[in-house]
Write a protein that binds this DNA or RNA. Sequence first.
DNA 1: CGAAAAAATTAAGGTTGCGGTAAGCTGCTG
DNA 2: CAGCAGCTTACCGCAACCTTAATTTTTTCG
Lengths: 239, 239
Amino acid sequence: MQANEATVLLVDDEPTIVRMLKKVLEKEGFVHIDTAATGEEALAACDRRSYDYIVLDVMLPGQSGFEICPKLRQRTDAPILFLTARSSDLDKLSGFALGGDDYVTKPFNPLEVAARIKAKLRRVAKSAESHATQGVYDFGRFRLNELSGELTVEDRRIPCPAQVFQLLLFFCKHPNRIFNKQELYERVWGGSGCSDDNTVMVHIYRIRERIERNPAEPELLVTVRGLGYKLVRGGNDDV
Amino acid sequence: MQANEATVLLVDDEPTIVRMLKKVLEKEGFVHIDTAATGEEALAACDRRSYDYIVLDVMLPGQSGFEICPKLRQRTDAPILFLTARSSDLDKLSGFALGGDDYVTKPFNPLEVAARIKAKLRRVAKSAESHATQGVYDFGRFRLNELSGELTVEDRRIPCPAQVFQLLLFFCKHPNRIFNKQELYERVWGGSGCSDDNTVMVHIYRIRERIERNPAEPELLVTVRGLGYKLVRGGNDDV
DNA sequence: CGAAAAAATTAAGGTTGCGGTAAGCTGCTG
DNA sequence: CAGCAGCTTACCGCAACCTTAATTTTTTCG
């Protein structure tokens, strides 16, 4: 993905910052840049179209960036970069539990932001090219082949029943993104009936006992208390 | 297959997308590119001539891409690449059901699409080449000759009725890939009528009693409960 | 052209593994 | 310390699957 094709959304309530950042990004080759001043505007923008990258200020009027982030995640898989004013905000970013992919503290160097966006987009494009093609999802420790329906953990074929497979496949298609039980039930089981949290939970467990080194301390399919679960893709991320 | 020989069909109702994609593909060396704005047009185009690759938007006026795909499959074996707008559509592509071979989410990089098409065509060309002994599928224990319609198991000619032969041939053409009963019925029998799972199942059994050492414990044509059936082939895979 | 043979489909019964449910337990969190 | 969210285990019913058999359709051949 090149800068001149990517669409970027800037979310910040301070016009000066937005203006400056937009200017720099444009100079750096980005042409599709939208802006939003509040979290609500950002959500609306994401409903309207789909972005390749989102820059999100933490301090926003109304709902904070932290509150908005999970809601954005329901709408898009795009990488999110947090702008934080105080370094204490950083504490809350531990493990990027909210689904963020990067962060920068104010005051920041706009060129650095541009560079990070470019780097991430390059990486996404590359991985999209190598993976997904042929429906093979490789997470290092385990590998899932969508077409042959095979799960391989540490080079060993592990039997995987249909429903477990479907759920794991869903996570593989949306790595690093948090889903709560309702969402999972709706999107994997097919929506219809009222969701059964427990059913989802049991299947989460069935995935873990297959792919985790120690199911009691998940490293791949981690739970984010109060928000849901996410499949973390480690490896090639230089934050 | 080279880009300058392949014929490609683009199906999308948004003229801007079609125009852009066509332009990029032409720049990438493709010369035979047709376009269609609806599923109906696409079907008509496939009746008129045969394509090497089809790019199919999911969101189409009238019948959706998902609905069109099986009907295209009755007319052609060409690889189909789905363009999906929302990532939730992706869920429906589990197992690339419906006969799709690849997918890309909007907004997409047209160069990536071009690259995928080229890669697939290269792969198809290569596998067609390696199967220099045309229409002969050798699975070690058994061998199927498409042209002469002969099935040989452990060097013994085994009589094989038409429908059984067709189904086995289909599996041979797509080794290691899972198909459920509906898919099999649509793609081997010719879709139209509502699929009869039982018919497929009986024919699976007919195949097994011919090629398996012990039909009760299939090793070649295995069932993946809840997902479907697949013909396993040890070693080299070109899915 | 009609009867017999083969093949395809439909039907029926038996088996099993999976998926959902529930229930008890653990450990955060306020 | 109480309450709640999540973990873990075990169990049971059902649906997916297999297999055989009957019936219909197609093909073959006298």
